[in-house]
Amino acid sequence: MKKYILPLLIGMFPLHAQVGINTTTPNSTLAVNGSLGAGYSQITANSYTILPTDHYITYNGTGNATFTLPVIGTGATSYTGRIYKIKNISTSGITLQASGANTLRIDNTPVASFVIPRGAYAEVVNNSNTTGGTWDLSFTVLPKPSNVEIYGAQLSIPPHGGGSPGVGDWSNHTVTSYDTGTGTDVWWVISKTSTAYAHTSAYSNTSRMTIVYEYQGSPFNVTNMYPILTAGNNSSFPDVFTASFVSLANNGTAGRTRLTVSVARIDFIGSNGSNNSNWTGTFLLNLLLARKY
């Protein structure tokens, strides 16, 4: 009895370059008509070496982390086309670094490491470079993830103490009329100290005021935080002001954040009939806090 094995064996292998899963008409080298699953890992450790079996990695640790990519070799460890997807859902940063002499490539300039900030997503693809080894970085959530936090608020500049009529200076938050904000996002005017203008034939000093504001929410992390101040005028008065930063520290009530600024009127100095440069209106201080981490 003759046995015909060869045709059966040939029938077990595809004779075309396109393979379909759940489809009889594949339109690509591999066509999947359905869902696709791959490896998923959630990491909380501050140091993690990415495995050849990893694919999608989420970081949810409590501090800055370092993720190290596998060493690029040859043959089975060349990893050409290998893709890693990394999502940072923590409040800290991930330093993604290559191994040994391998590099990362953002554009045409190789780098040893790159920081993935909180909320950012990075996709890492191994290219075909076997000399030195290179991983290409592409970003699908943030084109170039920012390493700056920004907070903005609009505060009040109270009337000058020497105005006519003026509003006397105070300390220890004894006057609440000029506080701004809602909920816990509130800034108190703790104190104001007014200095009247001085206008003589030899010199002129502007009317100015030193104001201490206190934030009533959770204290800011003031490390590497830089205030940007601009004075505004939404009234019918002609007054023009400039604001200068004095200090920012968590030295207020129960460790709250306090901001001290100096505000000066610069459109005119002195007295003109019933009007003088000791302002009597309430004006705006636009505050932008930027922290680099």
Score class of each variant (00 low, 15 high):
residue 197 Y to G: 03
residue 178 Y to K: 06
residue 290 A to D: 03
residue 217 G to V: 10
residue 207 S to L: 11
residue 118 R to Q: 12
residue 47 S to K: 13
residue 223 T to N: 12
residue 244 S to C: 09
residue 192 K to H: 13
residue 168 G to C: 05
residue 274 S to M: 02
residue 29 T to E: 13
residue 2 K to L: 07
residue 63 G to E: 15
residue 151 Y to Q: 02
residue 197 Y to S: 02
residue 203 Y to I: 05
residue 118 R to E: 04
residue 142 L to S: 12
residue 265 R to L: 08
residue 260 T to Q: 11
residue 78 S to G: 14
residue 269 I to N: 00
residue 233 N to F: 03
residue 202 A to Y: 14
residue 187 W to C: 02
residue 277 S to L: 04
residue 43 I to P: 07
residue 22 N to H: 07
residue 161 G to L: 08
residue 235 S to M: 07
residue 22 N to P: 00
residue 142 L to A: 11
residue 161 G to K: 07
residue 159 P to R: 06
residue 288 L to M: 14
residue 192 K to V: 12
residue 62 T to F: 02
residue 230 T to M: 11
residue 206 T to V: 03
residue 195 T to S: 13
residue 262 S to L: 09
residue 182 T to I: 14
residue 130 T to C: 04
residue 293 Y to F: 14
residue 8 L to V: 11
residue 67 F to Y: 10
residue 123 E to Y: 05
residue 77 T to Q: 15
residue 216 Q to Y: 13
residue 89 I to D: 09
residue 201 S to I: 10
residue 48 Y to F: 15
residue 181 G to C: 09
residue 203 Y to K: 07
residue 111 V to Y: 06
residue 101 A to Q: 14
residue 231 A to Q: 02
residue 243 A to H: 03
residue 20 G to D: 05
residue 21 I to Y: 10
residue 280 T to K: 01
residue 14 P to A: 08
residue 201 S to K: 12
residue 144 K to N: 09
residue 190 I to T: 06
residue 258 R to L: 06
residue 248 L to E: 05
residue 129 N to K: 08
residue 202 A to V: 14
residue 179 D to E: 09
residue 267 D to R: 01
residue 293 Y to A: 08
residue 184 T to H: 11
residue 232 G to L: 14
residue 123 E to L: 13
residue 115 V to I: 11
residue 22 N to D: 11
residue 255 G to M: 10
residue 28 S to F: 15
residue 1 M to H: 09
residue 74 T to P: 10
residue 174 T to G: 02
residue 212 V to G: 01
residue 3 K to Q: 10
residue 190 I to R: 10
residue 191 S to Y: 11
residue 177 S to T: 14
residue 35 S to W: 10
residue 63 G to K: 12
residue 267 D to S: 07
residue 35 S to K: 15
residue 5 I to K: 04
residue 103 T to C: 13
residue 118 R to P: 02
residue 166 G to Y: 10
residue 184 T to A: 15
residue 198 A to T: 12
residue 222 V to Y: 09
residue 196 A to G: 10
residue 231 A to E: 00
residue 42 Q to Y: 03
residue 92 S to C: 05
residue 5 I to Y: 10
residue 113 S to D: 07
residue 63 G to D: 15
residue 237 F to D: 04
residue 106 I to W: 04
residue 92 S to V: 00
residue 8 L to F: 10
residue 119 G to E: 04
residue 198 A to N: 14
residue 44 T to I: 15
residue 252 G to Y: 04
residue 241 F to N: 01
residue 11 G to F: 04
residue 66 T to K: 08
residue 267 D to T: 03
residue 68 T to N: 05
residue 207 S to W: 07
residue 41 S to A: 15
residue 216 Q to I: 08
residue 215 Y to M: 08
residue 277 S to R: 00
residue 96 L to Y: 04
residue 110 P to M: 06
residue 244 S to P: 04
residue 93 G to Q: 08
residue 122 A to Y: 06
residue 222 V to E: 07
residue 18 Q to Y: 01
residue 55 H to P: 00
residue 101 A to I: 12
residue 257 T to R: 00
residue 151 Y to H: 06
residue 229 L to T: 12
residue 129 N to F: 05
residue 257 T to N: 02
residue 49 T to Y: 05
residue 14 P to D: 11
